[in-house]
Design a protein around this nucleic acid. Structure first.
Lengths: 124, 124, 124, 124
DNA sequence: GTGGTCTAGACCACC
DNA sequence: GTGGTCTAGACCACG
């Protein structure tokens, strides 16, 4: 449960939090079935607003990655539809889908795009 | 000079307009040196505000894709620094750069990403 | 954070505001990393439109002198590319470059121009 | 009487024309007392509007560089107040005066400005 | 006719 | 509260 918030990022804070939690869930870094820390705890530790954390948690719930039990807390879904590995690809596919029209419009072919990835992806 | 505006898009209108014009310029669909239609004309045709069009035009000018002459109109830059082909890759690289951290965080490798592209890129 | 606006100036208001803020930033009069007053506050104090202030702020952002975070405010860039000292010379060089063709056309030599500066620069 | 008009200049056409004529007068390239070509002739040759040429001629007249005789034409002033050489410096001083506040505000000293000139003035 | 600037007023997302 | 976006309507300089 490591989260880092950058105030000078271009992404809103709630998306930063969402992204990091989501990644740790699909990567297995956070145990399926485990209980997430309360939004108030997270808010206090990251020194951000409770509402901001709540937004992130809501995104996770909408994605089916966690579920909420009133009065108990939020838990990582044990068996998300399709499994965790699929979730990972689903999130990536969704993101890629938003950009492909842009590349196509620009006249970038799949081959050229893959070339760009090789050049720009430093961490393999 | 084809532009389509979606009001229910998540992208602001001026960015939609910018993206479509920018693409047509770097693709050569719009002649270098030619005069763009006046912001008032475009605003009328797309049924949006003059200022919204102007925002898009300003982005194009900041990118060095067009230059504007008060009282005359806006013209496509003949020889942008680096050439049009470079501009095309520059725009794509910029976009890709915004997403790579996301994929890396998710645990998607370059190989997996390229696989995704092959599966999702219908127009080759 | 001192700004003075002259309505009868030949320069548009947003450029006046931009110039004064930019100078105070490159001079260190405004702390790097600090938060600028909100565009609404500045607009109220200077009795100008919010949008006019926003134009100035956008110029500052395009120059890389500030960055803005929606819902938080606008912040002075801590480490602009090249450093603040370079920014200072860059702005001066840019301005000078616009005038040199004029002096050359007039038949003023570099020596004569420097002579003029000595005579006209009261503050050394 | 050589004038070149650049459509893609950032300066308005009437200022381009004004500047070139003014320079040629203060440099002696145009004979004092001589008759300038008619605004219609100039407009035809430069393929610009008569009104545009008229604006330039009016600036010249306001500067005291030419005078108009209705029905006869426009003539270069033989003895402008202070002499032609002074006019040259006057124009330069005026231009410089507009920029010095900018440099001072930026924190650029006279010495630094002269340094910049040496570096940026290619034609001595 | 063109773009440049400025205005007041509105709704939205984020914190 | 903050900035982001969009609107309608106005006046100006330029050609």
């Amino acid at each position: 449960m490591n989260i880092t918030v950058l105030n000078n990022s271009d992404k809103p804070i709630y998306e930063q939090v969402y992204g990091q939690i989501a990644s740790q869930i699909v990567n297995g870094a956070i145990e399926p079935g485990s209980c997430l820390p309360s939004i108030r705890t997270v808010a206090r530790e990251l020194r951000i607003s409770v509402i901001t954390v709540k937004s992130a948690w809501e995104m996770l719930e909408n994605e089916g990655l966690i579920y909420t039990r009133a009065g108990k807390g939020c838990f990582v879904t044990e068996h998300p539809p399709g499994g965790l590995a699929d979730k990972k690809y689903e999130l990536a596919r969704e993101r890629l889908g938003r950009d492909l029209p842009f590349y196509k419009e620009l006249g970038i072919s799949a081959a050229q795009l893959k070339e760009l990835i090789d050049r720009e992806y430093p961490g393999l």
